[in-house]
Design a protein around this nucleic acid. Structure first.
Lengths: 264, 264
DNA sequence: TAGTGGTCTAGACCACAGG
DNA sequence: CTGTGGTCTAGACCACTAC
């Protein structure tokens, strides 16, 4: 096939003729290269969240490969929750607006009943300001110390009970134009706002969880006794290409809820 | 193809002609049926953990389908970590003995350094007895109240520091012959013992995590002050077919370690 | 050199959604 | 009815491992 050479030469050629690094992949299947091309289109915003991407046949013609190769590329992207296949309708860019997706990132569920059974969460922004990154914030977001960042603090309440207190840091540049009112007025998942307004889609996140006593005023905001054990959850969220785009430090009450996780 | 009918008739035929239940799947792809057949062989112990299963071509001949169909079935089982593909060598039954697998089930990692960098864990069984299931234990293990169970308590220490205290309940029947000495003498991951000695392979687990103060003697075993916040981790582990086979209630110190989780 | 899994293709047909 | 994704097949060739 003609473009086999074209494709093979683009993503990996640079690292090929370098030095004697026998550990380099030195071989990239066609479908992986197609996957990268699709990923680039997603990243650039050619297809927006919620929209349908071209059909498998169209993509096959566009990339000059067989439909099966495109299929395998899309299969992997769907397995990573970046695309969503719907038989008979098409393949769509995944979005945080879908109900199911919400609970891939919010793991705190009520002790009784399924996730979300306590009704919609109440979100209260209690602070929001523009500041500069301290050393540890900068490291987490792959910035330099002193780079401008947005910082917000909010409380999530379920059935009237304050349950989650979160401090959130965002790099100022990609979120240019995000204001306190904008955040405060938006009632809905934050990641939906991010992807619709700033073309920043959170794809993956890492969390570090500890048990810590309530202190430093957090006990008041969560309405618990000082010293009450809380779940401390630090999250770094990444967009396509593993770029860190958000740091969260959350404190969860676990008297009526628990953090749910599936292993395997 | 001849056996298309054979296969289609076996797993689903019963529920087909029943009543007007339009919610039933009413259609099962061939590769899903092959997947079930392979799963049955795994479950029955036809191929033991660590062993190679027959090659794709052999399985294709055995099931009278094309190699591609077998491949797709194996693909899914490999994605679920039940099988392990090794190019040029074959496909193997996954085992808990592999280094990488250990940390799919133990999510507590040191604050600095990669998982396992503190050296091997020291495992001390401090109690082990045969007893009868209370109501909540029975519910978790899908048993009846009063059914015989094995209960063990152990402490895991890293670099000499007691870090995890766990109570473990197992249904007595599948673990017939498991004694206190057997457990105490075995130095290694418990799930390895289970799969090699009892043909019980843990495939999936659900965890509920809370923050709780140290009490009821746990503070002594973990050598922390009474009231110190601990991570409370309740785990139910499942074998093939989603049968619950183990209940664990663990308490984790999070002063030098944290629970690590990936979302996405 | 032989055997394994991995890739790629081409074509036929099925299931599902919507005009 | 058409177009979409989903399944299944058959065959060719590639990459890796072991003997």
């Amino acid at each position: 096939m003609c473009c086999n050479m074209q494709l093979t030469s683009s993503p990996l050629a640079g690292s090929m003729g370098a030095v004697s690094a026998p550990l380099a992949p030195a071989f990239s299947p066609l479908y992986q290269q197609i996957k990268s091309l699709i990923l680039n289109s997603l990243r650039s915003g050619e297809w927006k969240p919620g929209e349908a991407i071209p059909s498998e046949m169209e993509l096959a013609l566009r990339f000059r490969v067989s439909q099966g190769t495109v299929r395998k590329a899309i299969d992997e992207l769907a397995a990573e929750n970046l695309l969503l296949r719907r038989q008979g309708k098409g393949t769509f860019v995944a979005t945080h607006a879908e109900q199911q997706v919400q609970f891939r990132f919010l793991k705190l569920v009520p002790d009784s009943g399924p996730p979300g059974s306590e009704g919609p969460a109440q979100r209260d922004i209690i602070a929001c300001r523009r500041t500069r990154a301290s050393a540890d914030i900068a490291r987490a977001l792959a910035l330099r110390t002193g780079d401008p960042v947005l910082q917000a603090r909010r409380v999530l309440s379920f059935a009237g009970t304050p349950t989650i207190l979160e401090d959130i840091w965002l790099p100022a540049v990609p979120f240019k134009g995000l204001t306190a009112e904008r955040l405060a007025n938006y009632q809905g998942p934050m990641y939906v706002l991010f992807e619709t307004e700033f073309n920043v889609r959170m794809v993956r996140a890492e969390e570090k969880i500890r048990a810590e006593p309530a202190s430093e005023g957090r006990e008041k905001l969560l309405k618990v006794e000082r010293g009450t054990p809380l779940l401390s959850v630090e999250r770094i969220a990444y967009t396509y290409q593993d770029e860190p785009m958000e740091l969260r430090r959350g404190y969860y009450r676990t008297d009526t809820h628990h953090y749910h996780n599936t292993l395997g």
